[in-house]
Design a protein around this nucleic acid. Structure first.
Lengths: 345, 345
DNA sequence: CCCGCACTTGACAACGTTGTCCAGGCTCTA
DNA sequence: TAGAGCCTGGACAACGTTGTCAAGTGCGGG
């Protein structure tokens, strides 16, 4: 009997298969499959023999083969922006919990804010035939996912909407939250209010800026360019921006900070100043209540974002949810002191 | 031609396969495979035709089938304790970076501190034939992984050692770090020093406790039972423990906090007190430097833990690293004020 | 003009699992 | 005791891919 094929190079020391188990137990292949999957139609005695062989050989079912045969992987993919960002921890955790409740595994990776990497990652997950995809977009063109979606991969976008395609997305009410936060400052007497945010090409940043403008307009305050910083969020630039708007003849008396990375730097700058400056920040921070003064924030519910997205995903898979929707979750203003400081004019 | 088999139930709307692409392009199956994998030996003209068919059909290679055939999945599994814990964000991120550099995907899940769930998750990952496993142990018996390791699954434990088996592990120097932190308090004049930590069945907690005891012994201070709390770390219990050791005729003048969850509560309790109490905490906190006073901590390098573990994992896979080793990474004492307060006797 | 060579291409088996279907043995009833 | 029906177990194909191998093509040199 000539060996026409060599076993391919494998990192595994040739693990036992069902065939091996069957041979050892002296039963047929399918009987082993039945035992492994707890299917009925096997006498206790046979089952015992099979189980013994399984234990003796250290057999474990090869899910790749199973997936190939069955067509469904019972796993979903999560593409997030940065695993190390504390905002995404609870979100990711919530997605995992829902997946687990549906018997699915979670595969995830970070795009590091790089659209190419997002695409590469999302498509790699599709190649693994995940049942669905939760994506926190880094890029703004997601047409590359169209064939996948058409082929049946459930897809939900979180935190930022999908670009160029019609898909489910779950967002925070960035506009409303920012508007509420800035209005809060106005109601405490502030008129010269600064805004430090991320680049407006990022949807959340643009929405928050829009909220800021709306609140100012509501209050009948014309916004001056010098009050806004919309660049990158590295500490150095944020610091410079904050210091600039706090100096000059008519400095701002309050700052609205557009995200948690910005906030950390702004707090540092404000801590160095003698004159108190009010602060409301988008995104909550751990220990924010222990600072002096406590930091008033517009808090998003990261866990709810993740949970809602994952549930919609499984809704799509069940066939219950068909029409793409855009869901906005409310934010919550948490007053802790920094946002209630009066203007120090 | 009788259909003897029905296609199995699939969530995918029957995606195109290489066979479909081949038919459309009018070439053989293997030629498609060659194009998809960038193998040589295809004329530009043929390649173009194939590529066109691929784009037209929205074909994407099925990696399950590929894995089945090739034997290696180019993915590694990470079992962590809680994705939402900020300590694990950077760790997980670092593992991902290394995996990415080796062209591997990361699949992860949380055990939620439940040993059964850890086992379930780790074995599920093995069933998917991950090439390797990075585990942050929840349980203390990992014999269940023996068949897997024997079968060639590279395995590295992080943060806590493996139980009952001989395996690679990468830890922080919990003992040394705690000893240094407590010694720091001693050197600032404290003698009655409290220790609030997690249950000693957790390795890190036990080691930190050992470090505390060693430092006290170094200083020739007999430890009193009332100074130690080794229970659960929920806020209520920690609060009660802290308040107890701060009251009575001879209250502690300093507290060493055993982990970041404990620390948060301890800071709250101390903030309510008039009399200043020194604090050194194991694990760094964001914004720790902005509190009044800044929190002196024994910092672990979570990213380095993850990076080292992942690199060892790939070392095992390369065949470079064979003998299991135990690696301890140093901690770093960061002084910020709270640990330098003198005893208020 | 034919042979050998390089190069391109495709047929086929195999990876490990599960769905289908049939065979054989058993029990139960008439 | 024969026939019907049930239950258990196994043979076999198929999932989509890749490795092997051989066939086909065209070209240049002897």
């Amino acid at each position: 009997m000539p060996e026409t094929q060599r076993r391919p190079e494998s990192r595994y020391g040739n693990r036992p298969t069902m065939k091996d188990v069957a041979a050892r137990a002296g039963v047929g292949l399918k009987t082993v499959s039945r035992v492994v999957n707890g299917e009925p139609g096997v006498t206790p005695e046979t089952e015992r023999r099979v189980q013994e062989a399984i234990d003796a050989l250290g057999f474990r079912r090869n899910d790749s083969a199973r997936v190939l045969r069955k067509g469904s992987t019972a796993s979903i993919g999560l593409v997030l922006e940065d695993l190390a960002d504390p905002f995404y921890g609870p979100l990711s955790r919530a997605v995992e919990e829902v997946a687990r409740a549906h018997g699915a595994l979670l595969i995830n990776g970070s795009s590091a804010e790089d659209p190419d990497r997002e695409q590469e990652l999302a498509l790699a997950l599709c190649a693994r035939r995940v049942d669905g995809l939760v994506v926190i977009p880094a890029g703004d063109d997601h047409r590359y996912l169209e064939p996948e979606i058409k082929a049946g991969v459930a897809t939900v976008f979180v935190d930022r909407p999908a670009g160029q395609i019609d898909a489910d997305c779950v967002l925070s009410d960035n506009f409303g939250g920012a508007r509420e936060g800035v209005t809060h400052l106005v109601s405490h007497g502030h008129r010269r209010i600064g805004f430090i945010g991320d680049m407006p090409r990022i949807h959340t940043a643009a929405e928050r800026l829009r909220g800021y403008r709306a609140a100012m307009e509501d209050a009948g305050i014309p916004v001056e360019d010098a009050w806004m910083s919309l660049g990158a969020t590295d500490p150095l630039r944020v610091r410079r921006a904050a210091e600039e708007m706090l100096s000059g003849p008519a400095p701002v008396t309050a700052i609205f900070s557009g995200n948690n990375r910005v906030t950390v730097t702004v707090i540092r700058v404000l801590a160095e100043r003698a004159r108190p400056v009010a602060l409301v920040a988008f995104d909550d921070l751990e220990l924010a209540d222990l600072l002096q003064p406590g930091v008033t924030v517009v808090a998003q519910d990261a866990a709810a974002l993740g949970r809602t997205a994952a549930e919609r995903l499984f809704g799509q898979l069940d066939g219950t949810l068909i029409t793409p929707e855009r869901i906005e979750l409310p934010t919550r203003l948490v007053t802790r002191g920094s946002g209630e400081l009066p203007p120090a004019d």
